[in-house]
Design a protein around this nucleic acid. Sequence first.
DNA 1: AATTAACCGAGACGGTACGTCCGGTCTTTAG
DNA 2: CTAAAGACCGGACGTACCGTCTCGGTTAATT
Lengths: 204, 204, 204, 204
Amino acid sequence: MVKKPAPDASRRSERSRRAIYAAALALVVEVGYPKTTVEAIAARAGVGKQTIYRWWPAKADVLLEAFLDLAEQAARELGQEPYAIPDTGDLAADLRAVLRATVDELLDPRFEAPSRALAAEGVVNEQLGREFVAKLLEPQLQLYVDRLRSAQDAGHVRADVDPRIALELFVSPLAQRWLQHTGPISHAYTDTLVDYALNGLAPR
Amino acid sequence: MVKKPAPDASRRSERSRRAIYAAALALVVEVGYPKTTVEAIAARAGVGKQTIYRWWPAKADVLLEAFLDLAEQAARELGQEPYAIPDTGDLAADLRAVLRATVDELLDPRFEAPSRALAAEGVVNEQLGREFVAKLLEPQLQLYVDRLRSAQDAGHVRADVDPRIALELFVSPLAQRWLQHTGPISHAYTDTLVDYALNGLAPR
Amino acid sequence: MVKKPAPDASRRSERSRRAIYAAALALVVEVGYPKTTVEAIAARAGVGKQTIYRWWPAKADVLLEAFLDLAEQAARELGQEPYAIPDTGDLAADLRAVLRATVDELLDPRFEAPSRALAAEGVVNEQLGREFVAKLLEPQLQLYVDRLRSAQDAGHVRADVDPRIALELFVSPLAQRWLQHTGPISHAYTDTLVDYALNGLAPR
Amino acid sequence: MVKKPAPDASRRSERSRRAIYAAALALVVEVGYPKTTVEAIAARAGVGKQTIYRWWPAKADVLLEAFLDLAEQAARELGQEPYAIPDTGDLAADLRAVLRATVDELLDPRFEAPSRALAAEGVVNEQLGREFVAKLLEPQLQLYVDRLRSAQDAGHVRADVDPRIALELFVSPLAQRWLQHTGPISHAYTDTLVDYALNGLAPR
DNA sequence: AATTAACCGAGACGGTACGTCCGGTCTTTAG
DNA sequence: CTAAAGACCGGACGTACCGTCTCGGTTAATT
């Protein structure tokens, strides 16, 4: 086993890192993931190829980091308290609101191409998939867990329900429609999901 | 736009076609989808590259056809009346049974690699994705639609529920866990899904 | 040891071969040997890089073949009986004539760049050097051997002289001046060489 | 034209300079000239790359200096009065002696790799070639000029002979055989050269 | 003794070319 | 005419070095 002598991260060029993120995201949007080449990212970023290979093992990892950065940045721009589902006491309304926001994001072309690309790569490349889930998806799902627990405390959801599974009744159908084109996604659709699923969770 | 003068399908070599299916599936299992090259498929199948390009536009289409063939063959082997969900009158039991069977199939390594590969390609390649869904996924989902409608007729499911959406409460969570590695899949898990979701669909 | 499965020479593209020769020679003349890259040769010849690597192991070998081809072609153009030193009976005159012709060739820019490049590579790359000598240099030196032997038969050169060594008295000084820039080369210079050296070979 | 502000030679690290010479020579011997990289020289010498680029414009110049240093050092070790051909009154014997010594040096592996490398580079890189000739070759050739003039004074060589050309009858054949592998070199060979050539220069 | 200026080892950087691999096309030979 | 074989053009891959640059850290010479 030959290990590279890990480069000195403290001397890393911030400028290059940002340029690479931007180039990678732009190219994925413009020409799609498979036609996005490391060479093109380097050229567009005005960077040597080695600078990419020095810091990332593969194209997918570049894109993952770039996307995480984008998501973080977007979150920072958007809201002060970005990491929570509203808790107005009305669980159905809160879920409808957050799912509608998710629909909007999934339809935003700025996000669609790169996140679709990452999801695809994650399906086939398990290591990347797990990182994608751990860093991006799971934290968001955790918000649902929190909100559902709060609803359980308020007696709006059966106490024996596992929130980590319950949330999938809302989230997974949307995810599948989006990922696999198994159907259109819209506010009406997510509203319906909330309607159907919440009944199953409510106390008898 | 230059169209190729479609080759004469009647003179196509059945032997080559089967060899190509076998080689494609074997390679996807052995080295994964991205490292499965048309060249390797041709070599392994003992076939000229042109024979592949003559009949399929791209690697993904070869694999799709190969997989459809595999699925059909497997169904035929299994024998029974393949295209239906049992209808014992007990909707919950029937759904649990069919979902458990799905779990088993998803965990079968013979199917896992190629179907994962196709799903991934379908995420990013919309045209292929739609074909994958239309030819493989949707027919199976339709079985759920049928079974749910039957349950509606028997009064076990609210009449105003759209079965095409309702089925996603059972199917999509499983699909997402499998596709995105967001959690383990098991019989217990799908049983729980049926439990949670069915409550929401039952008449009050 | 992994051997490539030798490509089928009978299917080789003559067109590509000639284009590669032309491109290689042109580039060596234009930008010099070290800046002549395989990539540039391929681009200029309108050829894939692999087509070069398929048939030649290295840049130097391409150039060697290209130059041999050029030399052969030039020889064919020039004379009907190209492979002989004139034998008028006057050894000194004959040697002067052939050396003057050599000087002219060495000063011809069409030949200078590539042959200098090959000579240089041959100095450092023994395998190539030997091939260069065997295919190009030695055949020419052999002509001197023949002419000197004829002179020995005529009694104009000492019988105990080894022609293969004797020829170096005329040829090597010129070669060294040209190769190593140790002095200017001209007709007067080679005439002087013939004058000095021939005395040493003449019978007492 | 932008000129670098010439570095302060008085503060130059002697230690680095010697380490670079040693590393350069060692690498040329071990892996050959073309595979000797500036990076490897720096690494082997335990020196930053910039330290090399600060003091030398190119790899070839490093090697030239290193070799000049080696030659000087070797000469100093040998002791005697290095810069002269013996003058015993017997020109033939003196030339045989010095050429035999040259043969020995050319066959010494310590010298062969670097001097061959320099000669090769000099063939193709005129600027370096001229420096190589001026600093190393020409001084040695001048010794022959001196010895031949002395022989002319003694009446052993025709007065109208140009010694600068005459010396090439002895030296160039040896040089060509060595440089271009056109034949083996040995004491017997150089003795023969002296025999053939000297006759041509002797007064009638 | 403190300051300053340069060299120094180290190595990241933007680049270029390497030699390999494969996509998709075209050509040849056999059946 | 199909099919196998495989050469072809094109172009991305990941690697190796190029020559430049920036970063602390010595080390001398100047204050």
